[in-house]
Design a protein around this nucleic acid. Structure first.
Length: 267
DNA sequence: CGTTATGTTCGATG
DNA sequence: GCATCGAACATAAC
C-alpha cells in the first residue's frame, strides 16, 4: 500500500492519536521488524516517553520523542499504522504496538515483513543516511531543481520517478498514474523528453500526489474514489483506459509490472 | 501448485 | 562510473 499519499495518511493517524500521550507499554510482537535493534533497547527508549511531533519524508514516517531522538517507520509493501481503541482488538499482523495511558494505542502492522521500525538520533541525518532526495511535495523542490537533477539522466522516466534519491515518495502505482496523467510513455528516456514534457511530468506528479494525499487514505482507498479519469481503478488485468477506452498495456520495467495506455501515452 | 504483490538492496552483467 | 536485470527478503491471497 504505502507510497507518499498512504504514508501521509499514516502521519495523520499518528498526529491525531499518538501525540503528547505517555507511552505506558511497548509491545514488540516480531523483533525482526526492528532489524539489528533489540526489542529491549527499543522498548526502553519509548517506555514512559511521549511522541511530540510527526513528520513524513517520502515514504518514511518519523515521530519525535520528547526524551530525544526519533521513532522511524517504514512500511515496505504491506505496512500500515492504525489507531486501536483501548477496548479494540489488535489488528492482524501487528509487529509493534505502543499503548498510551488510558487511551488505546498505535499498531504498526506489516503482513510481509518488508519494512522497518527503528530509532534514530536526528531526523535530518536519517534522511541523508537513507539517501533520500527532497520530499516530492516539498514546495522548495521546484521544477528547476527537478529538471537539473534529471535532464542529463538516460534512464526511463518511470525509473526516474521512482528513484527516491531524486525525489522521495513515488512508487510503482503512483508512477503509473502520474505518467498516464502526463500522457508520457513510461519507457521513454527522460533526456529524450522535450522540456515542456518534463515540466508537465513534474506538475502532474505534484498534482496526483496532492490529490491522493488529500483523500487522507492509501492508494487502495484512493482507488475506490479516485478523481474521474484516473488510471488507478483500471490498473488490473483487463483494465481499459479511462480516457479513450483502449485496453491498457501491461509491461515490465526494472522488475516491476506497470500499466499504460498505448493510445494516449504511445507506449 | 504456481503466480503475483504498493519497496529496497545487493550482486552480476553490459 | 552508470545503467539494467534478476534475485532476495517473507508472506498472504488468488
Amino acid at each position: 500500500m504505502p507510497e507518499l499519499p498512504d504514508v501521509e495518511g499514516f502521519r495523520r493517524v499518528l498526529a491525531k492519536n499518538g501525540l503528547r500521550k505517555a507511552i505506558v507499554r511497548v509491545v514488540v510482537r516480531d523483533a525482526r521488524i526492528l532489524g539489528k535493534l533489540s526489542a529491549r533497547t527499543f522498548a526502553a527508549r519509548l517506555q514512559g516517553a511521549r511522541l511530540v511531533a510527526a513528520r513524513r519524508h517520502g515514504k518514511h514516517l518519523m515521530a519525535k520523542i520528547d526524551r530525544g531522538g526519533w521513532l522511524t517507520l517504514h512500511f515496505g509493501l504491506t505496512g500500515a499504522l492504525q489507531f486501536v481503541p483501548a477496548s479494540g482488538e489488535e489488528p492482524a499482523f501487528t509487529r509493534v504496538r505502543l499503548d498510551f495511558a488510558g487511551d488505546g494505542g498505535l499498531a504498526y502492522t506489516n503482513k510481509r515483513m518488508i519494512g522497518r521500525v527503528g530509532l534514530v538520533e536526528d531526523a535530518a541525518d536519517f534522511i541523508t543516511a537513507e539517501g533520500l532526495g527532497p520530499d516530492a511535495l516539498d514546495k522548495r523542490f521546484d521544477f528547476a531543481a527537478f529538471d537539473a537533477a534529471v535532464s542529463r539522466s538516460k534512464r526511463d522516466v518511470k525509473a526516474v520517478l521512482m528513484d527516491q534519491a531524486i525525489m522521495a515518495g513515488i512508487g510503482n502505482i503512483y508512477s503509473d498514474e502520474i505518467l498516464f496523467q502526463a500522457r508520457i510513455d513510461p519507457a521513454e528516456r527522460i533526456d529524450k523528453l522535450a522540456p515542456g514534457q518534463r515540466k508537465r511530468l513534474f506538475l502532474k506528479a505534484r498534482a496526483v500526489l496532492k490529490a491522493a494525499s488529500a483523500h487522507g487514505a492509501g492508494s487502495e482507498r484512493f482507488a475506490e474514489r479516485t478523481p474521474k479519469g484516473s488510471l488507478l481503478p483500471e490498473r488490473r488485468k483487463g483494465g481499459i483506459c479511462p480516457s479513450c477506452r483502449s485496453p491498457l498495456k501491461i509491461f515490465k520495467l526494472g522488475g516491476r509490472t506497470g500499466y499504460c495506455c498505448p493510445r494516449c501515452q504511445g507506449c
